[in-house]
Structures are given as C-alpha cells and as structure tokens.
Amino acid sequence: MYGVVMIDMVYFVIDDWFFIFFLFSVLTYVFYLFAKTDSDVNMSSKKPYACGLSIDPYDEKVPSPSFYKTMVSVFHMGAIKKMHKDDLSTYLLWMFFGVVFVSVYLLIFNF
C-alpha cells in the first residue's frame, strides 16, 4: 500500500512539479519587481508632472498606510474597533453573553 502511494507521489512530482514551481517562481518574480520599483526611489530625480509641475517621486505613490485607512473607513469598521479598546468590563460582558448563549443553546437543543 505504501509502495503504491510512494509511486503516485513520484508520478505527481514528475507530472506537475514543474508547473507548480514555474507558477510560484513567476509570482515571486512579479512581487519582487513590484518591491524593487517601490523601494528604489531616487530622491534626487524630479520628474515633470502632467501639468508641468515638478513632483517628488515619493509623493507620486499613495503611502500604504493611507490606502488601508481608506479601506477601513469605507467599510465603517470604527464601531468594532471601539469595542476593542482594552476595556475589561466590556470584555467581561461579552464573555457573560457568550456563556449565556452557549448554555441556552445547549439546553434548547440537547435536552
């Protein structure tokens, strides 16, 4: 049985391993290119902007924290964040409701 499994595994590697490796390599390379272009910013070069204005290369890109803050504001997640402000009484209240929920569910569906 183990022999058959081993043979299957070897065939799988021979058949599909190249494809998997190739796909992962392409993906890694694409990410690497992104990382490289994102990191290698030449501060001294000032490129002309569309309307003739000069702009700092850093300012051409949206800073990633701003991007994710926008995403957070779009989804209105502030309320959930407010409930996670390290307030012990809030956490204990949640736990209490959790215990009630679990116990009531058990009593209704298991008795």
Partner: peptide, 18 residues
C-alpha cells in the same frame, strides 16, 4: 444526563472557548 449535565457542559465549553 440531566439539566445539570447540560448546563455543566455549557460552562465547560464556554471556559475552553476562552
């Protein structure tokens, strides 16, 4: 099992969920 058993399991499961 009685009501007490079920409530007991409720408490146990809640405790381990933490």
């Amino acid at each position: 099992s009685t009501t007490a058993t079920i409530v007991g399991f409720g408490f146990l499961i809640s405790g381990f969920m933490f």
